[in-house]
Structures are given as C-alpha cells and as structure tokens.
Design a protein around this nucleic acid. Structure first.
Length: 267
DNA sequence: AGCTCACCCTGGACGC
DNA sequence: TGCGTCCAGGGTGAGC
C-alpha cells in the first residue's frame, strides 16, 4: 500500500536514472495504461529530466510537456534493475533505459496504473496540499476540518484535502495525536488540531526515514522492503497490546476502511 | 455541497 | 489436500 512515504522512498531510489535516455517501452499488459495523451514511442530517445512525487503519484518528466504519471495502487512496485534479471510474475510494463538498466512496473492486484499526460497541472488540479510542504500550515489544516461532520479519519484519507495519506498512516497519525478516528472533524479542539498537525508531519517524516512500510507488497525503487512496519503502533495490530498503555488495540470500520486505534489513548 | 457506499482486482489467509 | 469464502485497499462515481 504505497502512500506518501513509500512513493517518496521510491522517488529517491530512482534519482540515479535521471538523464538516461529511454531505449524501449514494453507494454506487457496494456490495460495498466489508464490514460494516453500521446503514443508511448514519443518519449523513446528522450532523457528523463526529472523524477518527482505528488501525493501518492510518481512523475517521470520528459521534454516538451511529456509526463509519465504512475500510481501504485495497493500492490504496485516500481524499481530499476538490469535487463537480464528474471521477470517477476506480475510485471506489466518495462521502460528500457540506456546504460543497461530498465524500470519495471509490477502490480499483482492491478489497482494502480500508468498515465501518459501532457497537462500535469490539470491532472493534479483537485489534489490537496503536500502535508510535508513548507506551505502546509496549521491554519490550513484547521480550515480543512472546520464545520465538517465526517470522521476525521475519512478527511485525512481524502486526497482533495491533503495529498498522500493512506490507511496505514492515517491510523498511525491519529494514534500519535491521541484522537479517535471516528471523531467528527469539526468537533476537534484547537489543541487537538495542533496535535494532529504535528503528528501528520512527524509520522510521515518517520515513515520516510525508515524507507516506508512493507506490510505485504511494498518494495522500494531497488525492489527492497522498507522498515517502518516495525514501528507501527496500531495499524493491523487488532487485539495486541497498545505500545503505550497495554490496552488491546481495537478495530472498527470508518468510511468503509478498517481502522485501528487504542480506545484508552485515543478519545 | 457534504457525505456514504459500491465497485474494480486478485493473492493470501482462513475454515471446513 | 483442496475447495470455497472473505478480506485488503485508492480512486471514482452514483445516489442520497
């Protein structure tokens, strides 16, 4: 389940590919291409100019406004290797690069996808701010939550409000903030909003520093697992003792998503 | 406008 | 052992 910290880690791993020219594109499973503003061979011969991230999307930039925008869904992997390496079972897309390297896209459950896009700004038009960005402030978070009746967790998952938070980090952020995930967002106190703001930045940053969470499928840009799973406090720990107070972690469904929390530490 | 929910997909866990 | 069932989840869009 690649969320912001996982995609950021992949982005960092792929930086050595910048400047390498695209030699070939092999679409093993064309269905993973969700949008095609231009034919794939248009970028052959062009170097990758930039590899960046927006929310949970990874962006490969080529000259003249040609972008490959990749979402990994829940089981997607994007990593580089050498062409001779054995092909994994669910490899759907391969970008051959000069220098005997290739970028492979794997996705067992096919929730993810690749988009060939010209107008990046319009694609990301409705996406919320980057929570680790310098321009994401407490004021902004307060405004997003005010007078909303939906559960605070549901709003944290809404990419139009904040970009990049998924189910794992939403649960971990709310635990760190001591806020029950089902609380109506508009009822949070000023102090709780401040704790939430700090926790969002803190937990996401810790996730990045541990190279992401490998709960099951996630691998980084070198096909290696992350390390943050060893630091999860509540996610997928139903029935196990809360690391802080020892009370068993509980699970409930909020907005159709399984949500894990400590009923003593979070209110 | 705000909110909820079904849908897509398939591997893995679990029960019988 | 093998089969059937259920669960996981991001984004999208329908419907209230």
């Amino acid at each position: 389940m690649p969320e912001l910290p996982e995609v950021e880690t992949i982005k960092n791993c792929l930086q050595p590919l910048i400047g390498l020219k695209v030699a070939s594109i092999i679409e093993i499973c064309p269905a993973v291409v969700k949008r095609r503003d231009f034919p794939s061979d248009v970028i052959i011969g062009r170097p990758t100019m930039e590899i960046s991230r927006r929310g949970k999307y990874l962006i490969l930039s080529f000259s003249d406004q040609h972008f490959l925008v990749i979402h990994l869904g829940m089981s997607g992997r994007l990593y580089w290797t050498i062409p001779g390496e054995k092909l994994a079972k669910h490899t759907h897309f391969i970008i051959g690069l000069e220098g005997n390297r290739e970028l492979r896209y794997e996705d067992a459950r096919r929730f993810g996808g690749i988009r060939f896009i010209h107008d990046l700004a319009s694609f990301f038009y409705s996406m919320g701010p980057e929570p680790l960005g310098a321009d994401f402030g407490l004021e902004q978070l307060r405004a997003l939550l005010s007078s909303r009746r939906a559960a605070v967790k549901t709003l944290l998952l809404d990419q139009r409000l904040i970009a990049g938070i998924g189910n794992i980090y939403a649960d971990e952020v709310l635990f760190a903030a001591g806020i029950h995930p089902a609380r109506p967002a508009g009822e949070l106190s000023e102090e709780e909003i401040e704790r939430l703001y700090i926790s969002i930045r803190d937990v996401l940053a810790k996730g990045i520093s541990h190279r992401g969470t490998t709960f099951r499928d996630y691998r980084d840009g070198l096909n290696q697992p992350g390390g943050f799973q060893d630091f999860l406090m509540v996610y997928s720990r139903t029935g196990q003792p809360c690391p802080v107070c020892g009370h068993p972690v509980e699970k409930m469904v909020i907005g159709g998503r399984s949500s894990h929390y400590c009923p003593k530490c979070q209110s």
